[in-house]
Each structure stands twice: as C-alpha cells, then as structure tokens.
C-alpha cells in the first residue's frame, strides 16, 4: 500500500497526511526519499514534518485556501460512489457502531486537488454498496466550491481510480497474488474494471530498502508501534 501511495506523489507538490495514517505517512516519505525530494511534506504530529505553529486551525485554514495538492482520508464505510462514512454505521440516531466523526473530512475531500482514500481492511463490511451516512460525498452539484476531490482508493488488495464521469470507483490494478474472484468476494459492491486494469507493480528492492531504513526511522517519530511492527525484518 505504501508503495502504491508513493507512486502517486509528484515531486514539488504540497502533500499532507492527517491523523491515524501511518500507511500514507510511509508512502509519502518513501516518495520524498526517492522521486519527490522537492515535495513539501506535512505529517500531523510529526516533529520534523509539521510546519504550523497555530494548532490544527492553521492547518485547516491552509487547506481552505486550496494549498494542498494531495491529501489522504479513510472511513468506517466506503462505497462505490466514493462516499466516505466517518459518523456511524446504521441509523446515526441509534448507531450499531459509533465512528469517530468527520473532523474536517468533508471539507478536506473538496479542497485538496487530489485525495487518496486508504483503508487497511478490504472487506464487504467496509466496501459497501451505499454508506449509511455520507460524511464526505464523492461528488457534488456544480454550484459547490470543489477544486479537488477523490483520486484513488488504495487497499491491501487493489487500487481503485475514481472516475468523475461515472461518479464511481473503477479497479485500476489488482495487487500481485489477488484474483479478481477473491477481490469481488471481499468487496460489497459489483466491481467495475478499467479496460486497462492490470496487476499493481510489486514493490521494488529499492523501495523496500528505503521503507525498511529511512522511512521506518522517520515514521517511528510519530508511530513507534507501527514502525516496530510493519516493515518486516529489521535490517
């Protein structure tokens, strides 16, 4: 997932990673340490990558000005239309699961130029036909300020591309070792494939090497438990 995310980061862009997002943080740092050295990297709660002094207000104000090129969001439920649910599973008045809340996730799905949705669990309870509550809609009427929006969705099984014409996710690539049958069985909506859909390129030896050294070390400043567990054998 980190490698798939890293490949979406473009050199020179301003890229931000929000709360509870160690996988995007790893992907962005991998890009920064390889092909995107001139990217401006913002990682919430990271001592080296948090350029603000005015709390989250300064971050949100910066986002409102449309200054982020790439941002990351997730959700308790995600649907084929790119809608995210961070509020509740079931009726929000009597939820079966109370999710953490949006915390700006609606606005942050509109203003950054490209948003990558990530989720480390790819299952029918997460990837549903229709989310129970729309915290962040995949698409909006034309009279709403929305310079950006959904771009890709990255999971442990595949990469989706958001197709703005169809207002829906289409599978762009399936990760190595995952069959289309297995992917459908783990997804709660009928999959559409991009005509050019193929296999996600496997991580290269160089990518793995940087992940397990510089990225692990940098991510550990904010996510020590993740860094200790997620990068495979200690080198």
């Amino acid at each position: 997932m980190a490698c798939a995310i890293a490949r979406e980061v473009r050199d020179g862009e301003t890229v931000a990673v929000g709360t509870l997002a160690p996988v995007p943080a790893s992907g962005v740092l991998l890009a920064h340490f390889t092909h995107a050295p001139r990217a401006t990297v913002v990682i919430l709660n990271h001592p080296d990558y948090w350029p603000f002094r005015g709390g989250s207000r300064e971050f949100y104000d910066f986002a409102q000005r449309g200054r982020f090129d790439l941002f990351f969001l997730s959700g308790g439920q995600l649907d084929r239309h790119g809608n995210l649910n961070l509020i509740a599973v079931g009726d929000p008045a009597r939820p079966s699961v109370r999710l953490p809340g949006g915390a700006g996730a609606a606005m942050l799905y509109y203003l950054p130029r490209r948003v990558i949705v990530f989720r480390t669990e790819h299952s029918p309870r997460i990837f549903v036909e229709r989310v129970d509550v729309v915290t962040s809609p995949g698409s909006t009427p034309p009279d709403v300020v929305r310079p950006g929006g959904p771009w890709k969705t990255v999971t442990p099984l595949c990469v989706f591309r958001f197709d703005p014409g169809r207002r829906a996710l289409v599978v762009e690539s399936v990760h190595p070792g995952v069959t289309r049958e297995a992917l459908q069985a783990r997804t709660g909506f009928a999959l559409d494939y991009d005509p050019a859909a193929g296999t996600t390129p496997a991580p290269t030896a160089e990518e793995l090497g940087v992940l397990r050294t510089r990225v692990r070390e940098a991510v550990a400043r904010t996510y020590p438990r993740f860094a200790a567990a997620a990068f495979g054998a200690q080198r």
């Binding site: 409102q64 509020i87 929000p92 949006g102 609606a106 606005m107 915290t135 909006t140 009427p141 929305r146």
Partner: peptide
C-alpha cells in the same frame, strides 16, 4: 466555509446552514 456542501451534515445538523456565497 468553502467546500463541504452536499454531505449528510446538513441533514444531521440543521444548525449548519447552506447559503448563496454573497
């Protein structure tokens, strides 16, 4: 606030108002 319009917040939070941008 720019953006944001079109989510279920408008249904769940009637105190959030959508207005034409003057």
């Amino acid at each position: 606030m720019a953006g944001h319009v079109g989510s279920d917040y408008e249904r769940l939070r009637p105190d959030f108002r959508v207005i034409p941008n003057p």
